[in-house]
Write a protein that binds this DNA or RNA. Structure first.
Lengths: 357, 357
DNA sequence: TTGTAAGCGTTATCAA
DNA sequence: TTGATAACGCTTACAA
């Protein structure tokens, strides 16, 4: 504070242009080519004497090469394009976080494009990112417009899909083991005595993760019915503002259940919040009136009612691995498309433990 | 589905290089300069005949100019660097969302750098982004390392600060009106009969928004003491894992309050969650044992206990305006540094309405 | 009104 | 081992 006199505040140094490779060459008394060699093939092909001269010049001018120029020349940018369906969704953000970390560690920078759940922008996103010569894509998109995603591949850039598959696309795919997680949830509820289950999802519309979860739920019910007498299960798709339908679905659930215990399985955090709101409207309590398990653990899950039981997705891992896969390919690995499924973890809290009180 | 035969899946077209301006020129039978003119000064300086020929060629080759090459030549990249303190913080994400939207609308792309609350990376972030020739910066950073931020200015790039000021930096600043919001919160509590208040913040360490909120709280207490008999207020800084200190602070609060009503003001969403956890540990209820208002509204606020009263920050606006300010300057506006403060809105829920039950 | 050519900051190919 | 020089894809004097 003391050292910051008013004059030092105003007299900001005039914008001083970045040093270029030519400046360094001049300073060191060598050619640009030599500087470039120092940068890229330091150990080989260089006299010690010259190397140190270049090194000094670089330090003196605090030079660092322009990634833009490098990109233009090399055709590679050390940029990774990340397209997310919706930055508002905590899942997307968590993945973003993991991916960003992995990229930073490998010296890549992330260019972000948010779709805001507008699937029409999907091809815009890929086009824009592609124009900036991103070296590869991480896509957590809507999955409707397979063609758009394919474009990326057409430009020969590697792609990693997170959470949502694209039909007919040859790409690495990183995701939660949805089927396994559903089994975890459903068998926990059945063991806890719940017999009338309702799986609630956002509109499924071809989104692979939603399809997989719903399908796994259906299979579980039909497979388990023999060994769990009285077990029934249904699925329900709820659109964003249709609170009436949601309330009705919950009431119907209890009606169907009769004396049996009823439970809800929510397919993601967004849906969970809607169910929480519905429960408040109905004046029902988790664990008393209905059991509950939701996909996606959030920081607030423990504090809603008796605590919400959830499936924890390894989101950070998902992001890291997605970025890792991509970077591996960028380093030249020519592997066949991989599918990496990570297991979810069930966290049991009060909402899925029946409580008569 | 039917049209996707196995062969069409495998026989992906070979990576076909992007068309360049030279390709277009050849196709149209004109010079590169002409194509460039069509791109940049379409209306002026061009014969109708030639213009259409170029237009056709562009369409035929589905050409779009390389932003990298343009950036290299022009020195401008249509890229905006966004540095956030912590992508995990819902506030940062919300701002990010607003900024991203505004950028997209103006044809800018966002390069993201997350500090993960590690202040040492602040200068790395700015250096990395700056190397990619971003045209400007949106900074929501830790505010410790004023020099790092200043570097950005030194390269002559405009900067917008969000939520956190940097000492001695000439830059636009966009933020919540912290003082006003604190007054809103505190007077609401006092009017509700609360007389022993505790302001709980994450460690303040020079972070301007935290300082401002705490200072405003202190002034409010001393200004209002005369007109509100028995009014007392303290402030408390809680570090991330120190649950013991937090629990003690809450117990002491009620001890001090005696028969008077006690209330907590939490300085952001992260802190709110810790208070929620502490209340659970203590077995206390919001609105009964202590009153509560927290900064930052979250989707889950309504569903914790009787609902948490909160200050809603216009986060989307903050992001939009930040990006807007920047883009305005990028268009050439040479204004003095502006300070834009947006008002918060108080949402009253059960936690700040005393309930004897 | 259009074309030629130089240059943005790199890297890579050739000679020396 | 080092240095010219051409190219990457674009814009912009300057000429025509």
């Amino acid at each position: 504070m003391y050292s910051q006199t008013p004059s030092s505040l105003n007299a900001l140094p005039v914008a001083t242009a970045r040093a270029t490779i030519a400046d360094v060459a001049r300073e060191a008394g060598v050619s640009k080519a030599t500087v470039s060699r120092f940068l890229n093939h330091r150990e080989t092909l260089l006299t010690k004497d010259i190397a140190t001269r270049v090194e000094l010049a670089i330090a003196a001018l605090s030079y660092s090469p322009s990634p833009m120029a490098q990109a233009l020349k090399r055709g590679r940018s050390r940029l990774i394009g990340l397209v997310v369906a919706d930055v508002t969704n905590p899942f997307s953000v968590a993945v973003l976080r993991g991916a960003e970390k992995a990229c930073q560690e490998s010296g890549y920078l992330l260019m972000l494009f948010n779709l805001g759940n507008d699937s029409r922008r999907e091809s815009d996103a890929i086009a824009a990112l592609s124009a900036y010569q991103v070296d590869g894509f991480i896509l957590n998109t809507l999955g409707r417009d397979a063609k758009a995603a394919a474009q990326a591949a057409l430009h020969g850039k590697p792609v990693v899909l997170v959470d949502r598959r694209h039909q007919g696309m040859q790409a690495d795919f990183v995701s939660l083991d949805n089927a396994g997680a559903v089994r975890l949830v459903a068998s926990h509820l059945v063991e806890g005595g719940y017999r009338e289950l309702l799986f609630i999802s956002e509109p499924i519309k071809n989104i692979s993760s939603r399809e997989e979860r719903e399908a796994a739920f259906r299979s579980f019910i039909s497979e388990s019915a023999p060994s769990a007498p009285g077990l029934q299960g249904r699925t329900f798709e709820n659109t964003v503002n249709d609170t009436q339908a949601l309330d009705k679905a919950l009431r119907d659930l209890r009606l169907r259940a009769g004396k049996r215990l009823a439970a809800v399985v929510s397919s993601n955090a967004v849906m969970t919040l809607r169910v929480v709101a519905a429960m408040a409207r109905l004046g029902w309590q988790f664990g008393v009136d209905v059991g509950f398990v939701g996909f996606d653990d959030t920081e607030w899950s423990p504090y809603i009612g008796p605590g919400l039981s959830t499936i924890v997705q390894p989101t950070d891992e998902l992001g890291r691995i997605a970025a890792g896969c991509l970077i591996e390919r960028l380093k030249g690995a020519a592997l066949p498309p991989r599918q990496i499924l990570l297991s979810g973890r069930l966290v049991v809290r009060g909402s899925s433990v029946h409580n008569v009180a």
